[in-house]
Structures are given as C-alpha cells and as structure tokens.
C-alpha cells in the first residue's frame, strides 16, 4: 500500500514557512525563527525536577519512602546467602508451584536452589505456561531513587512477557544499580545501549494499578498484583 509520506512532508514544510511565536509565551507581536535560549537538555532537568541528594544514604531513604508509598515490597540483603533465603522464604509463604525466570548472574544460582516447576524464558516458551506461573523472577538495569522506579529492558529482564504476565514480579538487584533520578537513568541507557537499543525499555513503578472506577486505586489491574525488589548489598 502506498502511503502519503511525501504529501505529509510537503504539507509540513509549507505550514512551517510562517514562524511561530516564542515558545511558552503569550506575545504574538513578533515571531521567532530560533528559540531565545538553547533547548533544555537532560542535565538541566535537575534544576526543576524533584530534588535528590547526592549521598547513598539519602538516596536509599528516598527510595524506601517511594517503594512504601507505591506498595512495592522490598528487602535489603547483606549477602548472596541472605538473598537466597529471602527468595526461598517468599516461595514458602506464597506457596509458589511454578516459577518463571530468565538466566542471569543473580537469578540462576537462586532459581537452582529452589525445587519446583520452572519456566525459563531463554528457551522457547509457551505463553500459556508463563501465564500459569505464580511469579516472574527477573533482573533489571537500574533502580531510580527519585521515583521508586525499576528500569528494565528486554535484554536485562528476560524479554517483554516475564515482567508483565505473572501475578507477582520479583526483581533481583544490587545496591550499585541504584541511580539518583530519571536524568541519571536515561544517561545510563545512553551509555549502556548506545546505538543498539533493546526493542523494549520500561520503567516499572509499583504493582499494576487502575483508578478507572470512581478514581479509587485498585492494585493488580492487568499486570502483576504484587511487586517485590530484593536488593543485594555490594
């Protein structure tokens, strides 16, 4: 099917021949062809976005506050053994019968220590099997203190489905993965993925929610009803 690319571009170029008034102003008496100052960029956003302090302790306390406010469960674990026990304890209390996971430095040893049915998304998997999992266990790219968000990509967190389909999403992370704010998270994306971005990148902030009925918040609309972040000190 032929599309209207040339037509639309022609219309745009024709329309843009007359310059628009300065951005964000109310002055129609003169129109500018160039903005009055350089376009704001990533670094300058920190001047007005919610403030985040520089040291680890304040960032951690902000992160904990955000996690709590958005109903994200979390644990700070001192060693790999503790992390393993944390996950095993979750398995016991929630009685996981089937686990979805992807292979990774943090996930593999822990998954190996758990005796139950497993669906590994690195091998071709049937989405119906993943749907029957009680939990999806993944890693992530970063944790954002400013917003309490987890940054995942199709590459770091086992594709697209694992973190969205099972009713509980468990993220295994390290304290060194904590970044201060959204500009820092985007910096990390630029540096880590440069010109070869994964096909899906997502900021996850709390369990899935909706307010579509009388603006009352209900957790677990379509995505995970529960979100847990287990963070290993390093």
């Amino acid at each position: 099917m032929n599309d209207s690319k040339d037509l639309i571009l022609r219309r745009i170029r024709e329309a843009l021949k007359s310059p628009a008034p300065v951005p964000g102003g109310h002055d129609y008496s003169h129109a500018e062809t160039t903005p009055t100052r350089p376009k704001p960029d990533l670094g300058s956003f920190r001047q007005f976005l919610p403030e985040v302090e520089n040291d680890f302790n304040s960032q951690w306390s902000l992160l904990s506050k955000n996690f709590t406010a958005l109903k994200t469960d979390f644990g700070l674990l001192d060693s790999k053994e503790e992390l393993t026990r944390f996950v095993q304890e979750l398995q016991r209390t929630e009685n996981w019968k089937r686990i979805g996971y992807h292979r990774g430095g943090l996930t593999t040893p822990i998954i190996d220590s758990i005796q139950t049915e497993k669906v590994c998304v690195n091998d071709p998997y049937d989405c119906q099997d993943l749907e029957k999992c009680d939990v999806g266990i993944s890693e992530c790219d970063a944790i954002v203190a400013q917003t309490g968000s987890i940054l995942i990509t199709a590459r770091s967190a086992g594709g697209r489905g694992l973190s969205a389909l099972p009713p509980h999403h468990l993220i295994l992370a390290r304290t060194s993965q904590m970044v201060s704010d959204l500009p820092a998270a985007y910096d990390l994306l630029y540096q880590r993925y440069g010109q070869s971005y994964p096909s899906m990148i997502s900021f996850i902030t709390g369990p899935s929610r909706t307010g579509d009925i009388e603006r009352i918040v209900v957790l677990g609309a379509h995505g995970p009803k529960k979100l847990t972040v287990a963070i290993l000190k390093d």
């Binding site: 989405c127 199709a154 086992g158 697209r160 994964p198 096909s199 990148i201 929610r209």
Partner: peptide, 18 residues
C-alpha cells in the same frame, strides 16, 4: 510517575526471547 512507561523501538530482535 505512572506505573509503566514503556519505550518500544521495533519488533522482537534476534537476541530477544519474546
């Protein structure tokens, strides 16, 4: 910030699982 903010840059890539 909302619960999910997802950036999509194409169909599944060769090295991706789904």
């Amino acid at each position: 910030i909302t619960c999910y903010n997802t950036m999509i840059g194409g169909p599944r890539l060769n090295d991706e699982v789904d």
